[in-house]
Design a protein around this nucleic acid. Structure first.
Length: 550
DNA sequence: CTGGGGATGGGGCCC
DNA sequence: TGGGCCCCATCCCCA
């Protein structure tokens, strides 16, 4: 009996030892696996980052090449503009950057082109800006033939300004842009300047390491410190320093000397002037910014849609003082908001330390995320829009390719990118996020970002599970009002999507889409686009959808 | 069919 | 009264 008990005790002890050993082994395995797992995760993350960078670079290259190709075939700057473009005109500074924009992909390699994290925003908006210039110039100079414009330009050239010298558009653009960058760097006061500096730096690196010729300082005509090698006429402008000079004197002189050829730009704010002859540094009034942004943004829409910009909406006909003269007065009161706004936006556009998608980045920074702009920024913004869209909306429509739909009186606030009209600045601001990729509203529960607060609000139902829209015909509930509406076609039997090839109708777009593939196969159409173009446009929802899916 | 994001238009509120 | 702003409804589109 005693032996039995001893034996049992021994067995128990052995079992315990074995159990402990087993546990230790398991723990070790778990730890090892965990370490391996973590390592794999880390490596995967690194790979993802690398791939993402490559993707960004590729996108950028593709866009640039596309823009470059289109420009090479269409860009043409009248000689009378070239001189101004090079800063040889009577004006100094900043707006040369427009020329840059108009030039061949002269967006600097260190341009803060970034991809909005989590939002999938790419550099397209910037590309659009790059693409814009030539179109504007071409439209204005070849299409509109505006007499006053020509007069101003010529007057400027005749007024002792260094005659235009044939120059490479690219170099001009580069020079201007570079110069702007120099000033912007100092002017930057963006609250979020450092927020994504790492991303920016990475983007810069990618851009710099790319094969893009723009990274070549010589081609950019950069002088020391990365600033452009300025022409003598530029240096004599009274703005020797690339630093932005918010001198009221500059603009004031211009305004006071009515006969001064340089005044031509004060009363003429068409794209040609703005893009080629104006210097932001010279006049940092809001008006100038208006011109600036007008040029830039409207240019941006040109390459994209071949539309003309509404830039010259700021233009004041006849002898009336330009709209921005009022702003100048405003500046003269010591009010720096306009200037700040300008600097701010300039810096956003050019400062490499700022993560931005475009000059409009400023808008994002001022939005839900509170910034230093304060109430005045709103004023500036509105003022900008009002000035920008103040006159000649009809012409804007013409130039803008009719993007301003409906009553232009109601929609007098135009998008700087596509010149589409909106009823109020706020809507323009929101709309422009389409171009800028700005998504200020981020979900606290996931990585999603949204351009509109309401969309974020709607999105959050995904997390909350709230489905406020319930079908009265069944138990179905939806988080999306449109989903409910669409769902109800199940009950109503409504089939609003009709096939243009046959008589079949469908309740959902996807059904029609799939159905169309049948026709494609039957007819052996080579190109879907061609097939779809055969269908005459109609106003019924089905046909609309049909066209849209083409 | 459904889920869900992108984007626009309109209305209401406030200043 | 008008403008700015916010919110909502809605359409479109894609997965």
């Amino acid at each position: 009996m005693a032996n039995c008990m001893v034996f049992n005790a021994q067995i128990a002890s052995i079992m315990e030892v074995l159990a402990n050993a087993a546990v230790a082994e398991i723990c070790k395995l778990v730890d090892d696996d965990y370490a391996v797992f973590r390592l794999e995760i880390t490596q995967s993350q690194k790979e993802n980052r690398a791939l993402r960078r490559k993707l960004q670079l590729l996108e950028l290259k593709v866009a640039r090449e596309r823009v470059c190709a289109s420009r090479l075939s269409s860009v043409k700057i009248p000689d009378r503009y070239r001189g101004m473009a090079r800063g040889e005109g009577h004006l100094t500074g900043g707006h040369r950057s427009f020329v840059k924009l108009a030039g061949h992909n002269t967006w600097r390699d260190d341009q803060p082109i970034t991809v909005d994290e989590g939002s999938g925003t790419s550099t397209q908006n910037i590309i659009m800006i790059e693409a814009a210039g030539p179109g504007v110039k071409q439209e204005r100079t070849e299409g509109e033939k505006e007499p006053q414009h020509s007069t101003d330009i010529q007057t400027g050239a005749a007024a002792g300004v260094v005659p235009p010298v044939a120059t490479e558009e690219l170099s001009t653009a580069s020079t201007l842009q570079s110069r702007t960058r120099c000033s912007i760097k100092e002017a930057s006061r963006t609250p979020n300047a450092i927020l994504k500096s790492e991303t920016v730096t990475e983007t810069q690196r990618l851009l710099q390491t790319g094969s893009d010729h723009r990274s070549d300082p010589e081609r950019l005509e950069l002088g020391p410190l990365g600033c452009p090698a300025l022409g003598s006429e530029y240096l004599l402008d009274g703005n020797p320093s690339p630093r932005t000079v918010h001198s009221h004197r500059d603009s004031g002189d211009v305004l006071e000397t009515g006969n001064d050829p340089s005044c031509s730009y004060t009363t003429e704010m068409d794209p040609g002037n703005m893009s080629l002859g104006l210097e932001t540094q010279t006049d940092l009034s809001r008006g100038d910014w208006n011109r600036y942004s007008s040029s830039v943004y409207s240019e941006g829409c040109l390459d994209k849609k071949g539309e003309v910009i509404v830039v010259d909406k700021v233009k004041v006909e006849g002898d009336a003082p330009p709209t921005w003269n009022v702003d100048e007065t405003h500046l003269g009161e010591g009010h720096s908001q306009g200037r700040d706004f300008l600097d701010y936006r300039e810096s956003l556009e050019t400062n490499t330390n700022i993560t931005t998608h475009s000059p409009l980045h400023a808008i994002r920074d001022r939005e839900p995320v509170s910034t230093s702009m304060g109430p005045s920024d709103s004023h500036d913004r509105v003022l900008f829009h009002q000035v920008f869209n103040s006159n000649d909306s009809a012409r804007a429509q013409t130039q803008g390719g009719g993007a301003t739909s409906g009553n232009s009186k109601e929609k007098r606030f135009l998008c700087m990118f596509c010149s589409k009209g909106f009823s109020c600045p706020q809507k323009v601001e929101i709309h422009q996020r389409v171009h800028t990729g700005v998504k200020p509203f981020s979900c606290t529960q996931c990585h999603m970002c949204f351009a509109q607060a309401c969309n974020l609000k709607r999105h959050q139902r995904v997390h909350t599970g709230v489905k406020p829209f319930s079908c009265t015909q069944c138990h179905m509930r939806f988080s999306h009002s449109s989903s409910l509406k669409r769902h109800q076609t199940v009950h109503t039997g409504e089939k609003s999507y009709s096939c243009p090839q046959c008589e079949k109708r469908f309740s959902h777009q996807h059904q029609l889409k799939m159905h169309l593939k049948v026709h494609m196969g039957e007819r052996q159409f080579v190109c879907t686009q061609e097939v779809l173009r055969e269908v005459p446009p109609q106003d019924t929802p089905a046909e609309k959808t049909f066209h849209s899916i083409t």
